[in-house]
Simulated scan of single mutants.
Amino acid sequence: MTTKNEKLRWLILCAMFAAITAVLAQMEIPLPLVPISGQTLAVGLAATILGSRYGAMSMVCYVLLGAVGLPVFAEMKGGAGVLVGPTGGYIFGFILAAFFTGYILEKTSFTLKWAMFANTVGMIITLVMGTVQLKFVMDMTWADALKFGVYPFIVVGLIKAFLASWIGITVRRRLKQANLLQVKGDVAA
């Protein structure tokens, strides 16, 4: 395969994961300040399947789509106002979470055990970034920011980390077997 075709394939995969994130963002459980949505599951899937560089790139694409006003964020919201609002830190956190989740897997191995660890780290990154912005935008105490921005998401976050790990590793293996995902120097099991 030529380098041009390879780059196109990666760009298509990034766009697909940005779209998957937009779709999963609409699957939510409303809470007072920050809803529980499927976005973080999509972040974990993107990172586990695509790795650090392209997982993060897919989240950059997702954030940019929302920033220009497309209704890709939770509750069919879009626009720069969402990014500077109470939930914006979580959304920006998706980029770093995808990068570090993929990075951990690239430096260890693409196995369920390491994927679970990496996706848990990604969840923590998202929660930390989201809670910091929530605290300052809503002028909350740290205790209230944790109460509304972290505690409701821990159990659900761990479940999503497991699902992203299990589904992501399975899909990654199948894509590699079908020669649809070619990664140089991959340490995948």
Rank of each mutant, 00 (worst) to 15 (best):
I154M: 11
R174G: 03
R174T: 11
A15H: 05
F117S: 01
G38Y: 07
W114N: 14
L83G: 05
M138K: 13
L45W: 03
C14T: 10
A25E: 10
T21P: 10
W166H: 08
L112F: 15
Q182W: 09
A74T: 15
T101A: 03
G102Y: 04
G79M: 00
L24Q: 07
R174V: 09
I12V: 14
G93C: 05
V132C: 07
W10F: 13
T87S: 15
A74V: 11
G102D: 04
M138S: 13
T108L: 02
V82S: 00
P35M: 09
L50G: 00
L64F: 13
L31Q: 11
G89I: 00
L180K: 09
F100S: 04
T101P: 04
K107G: 06
Q133L: 09
K4F: 12
A46D: 02
M57Y: 12
C61M: 15
C14P: 01
F117A: 08
F148D: 02
Q177L: 08
P152G: 09
W142I: 13
K184W: 07
A143P: 05
L41H: 03
I167R: 00
Y103V: 00
K160P: 10
I169V: 15
T48P: 06
V60E: 03
A19F: 09
I124A: 13
F136Q: 09
D144T: 08
T120V: 14
A56E: 01
A189W: 06
T3I: 14
G38T: 11
T141S: 15
G157V: 10
Y90S: 04
A145V: 08
L112I: 15
F17N: 01
W114D: 09
V171G: 01
I125K: 02
V156P: 08
W142S: 11
P152N: 07
A188N: 11
M116V: 13
L127V: 09
Y90M: 08
